[in-house]
Design a protein around this nucleic acid. Structure first.
Lengths: 143, 143
DNA sequence: TTATTATCTTTGTATAATTCTAATTTAAAA
DNA sequence: TTTTAAATTAGAATTATACAAAGATAATAA
């Protein structure tokens, strides 16, 4: 969970103006779990009445371009957003659009070793992300 | 490249009626490379004038549900579809929307061994798919 | 601190992808 | 064949997202 200070710092570092809208969108991204744009809009609107949906899309686009956050598409065809603190993978439920983070440095090491040897011709590899498909056994708890 | 015979057989096996629209959509899926719904629509319309876009969406949904084809989840806003002959991964260009298949049984073995040991709690794993992000060195040839 | 300016946000409209509904047609079983 | 459940269609509706122009504001430098 990031503090406002850290959010402000991240925005500045990226050469972005620090606006209340941007800070609030980032906060929503940390608070909500892989939210959709409309969820962010609703959340942020509570603190910033009069917020425009366009602003949310603009802010999200800017953050994606600066690689501060990421877009992720789920099974259900909705776009979700992810504050990408550290490198991580995603577990997807094949029955719903539920999605969770999966962090596993050991696996990352294994993969990075493997691909160092492998070296795909004509392709400069930058990152490996896993989509781990399956079913969650326990239903998601309401927060 | 699948023959019409094989496509018909696959549809029947899944308990689906064999309609010209379905066969044509499957053919388009093999001909085109990870097409979007609208690309399929345009392709199939050439042979089946008067085709409705709704039909393309319906057919794609049915095929996805019967696990004959797959939706490909990317960071792009549009959904792409994949005739899933064999298990494979995807390589993505970070500079464009280019996307290629990546087949690597050795890697699959490695991953399956790893996750057999690992066993994520509360999650029934079905499949691992890699998103290999990077840059293609040579531009794609026009077909 | 204040003025300046580039950047951001907003409003309102537009567009594109996808879904819905209800009517019509068709593949396949009897 | 006839029947019927399943599939397709047209057209309207919805939804998410993008656009363009005007107004507001954060950051820079005077």
């Amino acid at each position: 969970m990031e503090t406002v200070q850290e959010i402000i710092q991240r925005l500045s570092q990226a050469g972005l103006k620090v606006t209340p809208q941007r800070v609030a969108v980032m906060q929503a991204l940390f608070k909500l779990h892989h939210p959709r744009a409309d969820e962010i809009f609703r959340e942020v609107s509570q603190n910033l009445p009069g917020l425009s949906p366009t602003t949310v899309y603009n802010v999200l686009d800017v953050l994606v371009n600066k690689e501060i956050i990421r877009k992720v598409k789920t099974e259900a065809d909705v776009m979700r957003y992810d504050a990408m603190a550290d490198h991580h993978h995603h577990m997807y439920c094949t029955q719903s659009d539920r999605m969770e983070d999966y962090v596993d440095p050991e696996l990352d090491q294994l993969l990075s070793d493997y691909f160092r040897k492998k070296d795909i011709k004509g392709f400069k590899l930058k990152e490996i992300k896993l989509q781990i498909m399956g079913e969650f056994e326990k239903p998601l708890q309401k927060s």
